[in-house]
Amino acid sequence: MSVRPAGDFKTSYARDMALLDIRFHRAGFGLLLLVLGLAPLLLGRYLFLLNAIGIFAVGAIGVSLLTGFAGQISLGHAAFMAVGAYTSWLATTRFGLPFLVALPLSGVAAFVVGAVVGLPSLRIKGLYLAIATLAFQFITEYVIIHTVGGSGGNVVPAPRVGGLQIRGETQFYFLLLPVWLIGGIFAANLIRGRVGLALMAVRDRDYAAQVLGINLLYYKVLAFALAAFYAGIAGSLFAHYNRVISSEHFSIITSIDYIAMIVIGGLTSLWGPHLGAAFVILLSQVLKIVTPAVVALVPAFGKAATSVREIAFGAMLIGLLIWEPGGLAMLLRKFKRYLDLWPFTY
């Protein structure tokens, strides 16, 4: 089905391929930018939630490119994030580089590592690829523990931009927001253009993609490298936000969270990683508040309380896969379609 809202006609191919193709979307996006800009005022002391969402949304964009659009699964996304975080840590502490240099450097370091990890994807597919990336995840954790700092953690300095020391949630938020927006728009542009077309072709039918002149190895490796780049940027942001990093921040649990984010958000949607990151972060927070309250009321619940987060995510994933495989983004689209046609639903 391709339902088009009435009265909004496209008169050029450029309009047809615009990211925000109708007036309603452009207005909506403008409103979203406004709300994001005013978020520190609106959210007050809850701004830390948006900071966490932003960081993980940037990382999740990478997973969505890799898994959603290129069809390659990775269970090592937290390890790419670790590469970025520790690159940033090294760059700012050992080499005294400013944050604005360390940030892209982290992305580039992860990009290179991602390309190497992506190499086997030409030969191994699906579950086997997942296991190969899982190996990378554990190797990275092992390397971190045995080289840079054990599990004790490494202290990362607060970011400094120009002469300004970034302190507090609000200042960090305004550092994060441009990175988040640029990251999201860059991915959206990639997907609608040449690279996105090639990635989706590889995902949908790799042998046909070859016949159309697509070099499978190049695009699979590119997908891994791009995903790792986003994770590296997210890792660097996380390091400077959290100020302490250790192997525990980048464990397999985080990798799985990333998968949960894009599945919940919507695998093949540009909004998916953002919605998914928001959902996962918010649900985690709500559970942190609700679980102790429930345990206080029903002490017998105490035993299950430690793993209630995993249980909730697991149930959520199963539910979504059964009822709405398109994730939250698809729910949003269905709602929009309903609005497009309202009040005449035929």
Binding site: L197, A198, M200, R203, D204, R205, A208, L212, G213, T268
Partner: peptide, 20 residues
């Protein structure tokens, strides 16, 4: 052997990839 999840337009566009 088309790309099932992509639109007809995107499928044909993918033929132009070698010229982009």
């Amino acid at each position: 052997a088309l790309y099932p999840a992509m639109s007809a337009l995107a499928n044909i566009m993918s033929g132009r990839l070698i010229h982009m």
